[in-house]
Simulated scan of single mutants.
Amino acid sequence: MQSTDILLQDLGEDGILRLTLNDVKRRNALSEAMLAALGTAFAQAGDDPSVRVIILAANGPAFSAGHDLKEMTAGRAAPDGGNAYFAKVMAMCSGVMQAIVNCPKPVIAEVAGIATAAGCQLVASCDLAIASDRAQFSTPGVHIGLFCSTPMVALSRNVSHKHAMELLMTGDMTHAARAAEIGLVNRVATEDALQDTTMEMARKIASKSSMTLATGKRAYYAQREMPLSEAYEYASAVMVGNMMAHDAREGIGAFIEKRAPQWQDA
């Protein structure tokens, strides 16, 4: 795991990889450099058998302020007014969000500060999220004439229709407690307890079979886009395949024999 100035990486002995956004001066904006670093980190972590769970955190008062608007504005200097550049950045950002979903390892967002626009999208794209009671979330594009259309994709897959539309159409800040109520985050902790709360969840998940978690994560995201009958057919096939795996035999046997399972992650 290779850290950069803007993205720190720390892999613990328990298999928990901590990725920390560290571009504090730019409020951890999703610049080209940050998006590239995140894309590489998630690709490497997904392929690394020593990584069992990923925590995505941030230094500074902002988890992420979203796209770097100064960088985006500079792109307008191109002969096409920035059209090709904007398309490139949006493709990079969408790629990172999909890399989180497609990563076989569980990804937990640890949100201590403000997450706005594509920063809120980043939280919504993670499998789980723990927020400080001081964290805030918003999709404020409407304030500057730019609807948060790409954050909308992740947001609308996490919260109900009307709650998503309220966030997108008003651009208002949503406090952590409300974010938990509408399903954007799993739970809220005090600022002092945030990291411990996240680690508690991460360790619990890391103790499971990584094969089982990868199977389940992949199936979860696949089935939710399917019609009901197709989803059941697909999930049934996944369940049969899972039953044939070593760790399922081991886990069931351990339960019957009242002992701790010995995972082989296979």
Results as ranks from 00 to 15, higher is better:
5 D>H: 13
6 I>V: 13
9 Q>G: 10
12 G>H: 10
14 D>S: 11
15 G>Q: 05
18 R>K: 09
22 N>V: 05
26 R>K: 12
29 A>L: 05
33 A>H: 03
41 A>F: 13
42 F>Q: 02
44 Q>K: 08
57 A>C: 03
58 A>N: 03
59 N>G: 13
67 H>Y: 14
67 H>A: 14
68 D>F: 00
75 G>Q: 07
76 R>A: 15
80 D>H: 04
80 D>G: 04
81 G>L: 05
82 G>Y: 00
83 N>C: 14
86 F>C: 03
90 M>C: 15
91 A>V: 09
92 M>R: 14
109 A>G: 06
109 A>E: 01
113 G>P: 00
114 I>E: 01
116 T>P: 00
120 C>E: 01
123 V>C: 05
124 A>F: 01
125 S>I: 05
129 A>H: 01
132 S>P: 08
144 I>R: 10
144 I>L: 02
146 L>M: 08
147 F>Q: 08
147 F>D: 08
154 A>V: 11
154 A>M: 13
154 A>F: 10
155 L>Q: 04
162 K>C: 11
166 E>T: 07
170 T>I: 03
174 T>I: 14
177 A>L: 11
179 A>M: 02
181 E>V: 12
181 E>Q: 12
182 I>H: 02
184 L>H: 00
186 N>E: 15
186 N>K: 13
186 N>V: 04
195 Q>W: 10
199 M>H: 11
199 M>E: 13
205 I>H: 03
208 K>T: 03
210 S>E: 08
214 A>Y: 02
216 G>S: 11
217 K>M: 08
219 A>L: 02
220 Y>T: 14
224 R>A: 12
225 E>I: 06
225 E>W: 04
227 P>M: 08
234 Y>E: 06
234 Y>G: 01
235 A>N: 10
235 A>K: 05
235 A>S: 09
239 M>K: 12
242 N>Y: 12
247 D>V: 02
256 I>C: 15
258 K>C: 14
263 W>D: 10
263 W>S: 05
264 Q>I: 05
264 Q>F: 10
264 Q>M: 10
265 D>H: 05
